[in-house]
Amino acid sequence: MLQLLLFNVTNGLIIGAFYVLMALGLSIILNLSNVINFAHGNFLALGGYLAYVLSPYLGFWGALVMSPLITGIVGFVVERLMIRRVYGRDPVYSLLLTFGLAFILQDACRYVWGTQGLPLTVPAELAQPLSSTLFFITGYRVFMIAIVMLTIIGLFCFLRYTRAGVRIRAGILDLETVAALGVNVGLLRSFNFAVGIFLAGLAGVLAGGQIGLNPNMGDSLLMPTFIAIIVGGVGSLTGTLVGGLIIGVAAALTTMFYPTAADAVIYAIMAIVLLLRPRGLMGEEGMLT
């Protein structure tokens, strides 16, 4: 029983880590640009597929670094070419735009790499279990959690201690004043978008190693990610972090006791949170509501 419980909690943490990584990327884009990126899950898939293409040449480790970077650059270009044009318009346009992008990216992945799932091989030293009784704790899972934690720490340090990060945080609070102080806000938003997409790409590589690659792999992650952001509170990155973990663990624990309700329980959590705290757990007054 204890082992089963541990198994599910570990699973939940790992799923939660994916949610957090994806939700953080979605959240920083949402906070600064006021755009819900529906194509986030498809950028995730793109990151995974790029790793699949790159790993024969660079090895897994090289792909782990390069693939998110390339995905981020793709995101930067997309922002420059399209997303930028809908800032300041009715938010319905940005939603429709990223919706269309999601369709195009998903179809492109299917066209290039096929509908069949593809495996992303991870190094042998990561693939084996660390303990014979707790067989489910493989090296890869521990490694994944470590990478996610490092990335989150890195992101928070970046936002707190670097000039660009401080500007992003200031822009979330009051973009006009930041622009008036002489910051190139357009470039800041593009860069910020690229950072968000970078996180999606990283999540894609990690997810590819765990569950394999397929063109729809991001879709099932998108809704829980939304809910993680809503539960945590729009506008708060710490909230997103907490929200993602809560959602992940709750889904895993429900899977253990009553698998059919695993999807439903995260919606139930959202409904309860919204009833009690309409702005989410850590949402702030006046932010994007």
Binding site: V86, G100, L101, F103, D107
Partner: peptide, 15 residues
Amino acid sequence: NWMSFIGLLFVLVVL
């Protein structure tokens, strides 16, 4: 690949 075209339609209409 009709999905791409529908997606393209979204993008063109918005832009």
